[in-house]
């Protein structure tokens, strides 16, 4: 039986510290609430209390917004929902994700170049969904507040891997 403890560096405890390179700032951020809502889009938006579901290259604003994931699914960020599970009244399935997604922000004039290492990203190719595969990782990718500020949500079990991959790419892009 092999002991691989040394091969895998110990994960961060608490939020990871800021990483800065030329034209790039990487942070871990905490969002107030993340809730998966599945079902008809209009009903889901009404439950989430939002009017627009962010896709690509939309820019989400504020601390309460909805991300468009699938034909019949959004992720509500911020906002308030009291009970989870099957909501028969509105025909929606809801699950509190809590910190199941870890969120990183990548900001700066060269942030887009870092993102282009992992996916064919372009403003010329819009998308109704912010789900994509980035350097092999399943993530949610969208812009928030500014056109050069990108938020990445990743399943928390792979957050350590994505953080390392982002750092590797930042090092190479700014070399």
């Amino acid at each position: 039986m092999r002991n691989d403890t040394a091969k895998w560096p110990a994960p961060a405890v608490g939020p990871r510290g800021q990483v800065q390179a030329q034209g790039i700032t990487l942070d871990q951020i905490t969002l107030p609430r993340q809730v998966l809502i599945s079902g008809p889009r209009d009903a889901a938006m009404a439950l989430a209390g939002t009017t627009q579901a962010t896709g690509w290259p939309d820019v989400a604003m504020g601390d309460h917004y909805a991300l468009s994931l699938r034909r019949d699914r959004i992720l509500m960020v911020g906002g308030q929902i009291d009970s989870f599970g099957w909501r028969a009244d509105v025909g929606l399935a809801t699950s509190d994700i809590g910190t199941g997604y870890t969120v990183f922000s990548l900001q700066g004039p060269r942030a887009e170049k870092v993102l282009r290492t992992g996916t064919e990203l372009s403003e010329k190719i819009p998308s109704a969904s912010c789900l994509r595969l980035w350097n092999g990782y399943d993530i949610l990718l969208y812009r928030h507040t500014a056109t050069d500020r990108y938020l990445l949500h990743v399943g928390s079990a792979l957050a350590e891997g994505l953080w390392d991959m982002l750092n590797r790419q930042i090092r190479m892009v700014s070399a």
Binding site: R2, N3, T5, K7, A10, A157
Partner: peptide, 25 residues
């Protein structure tokens, strides 16, 4: 190295390491 097949990591990994856990896939 660790990006060839990145492993999923438990939120309890720091606790487990502190207790002397020998980690493996």
């Amino acid at each position: 190295s660790t990006q060839i097949a990145p492993l999923q990591r438990s939120v309890l990994e720091p606790q487990i390491r502190a207790l002397g856990g020998a980690m493996a896939e």
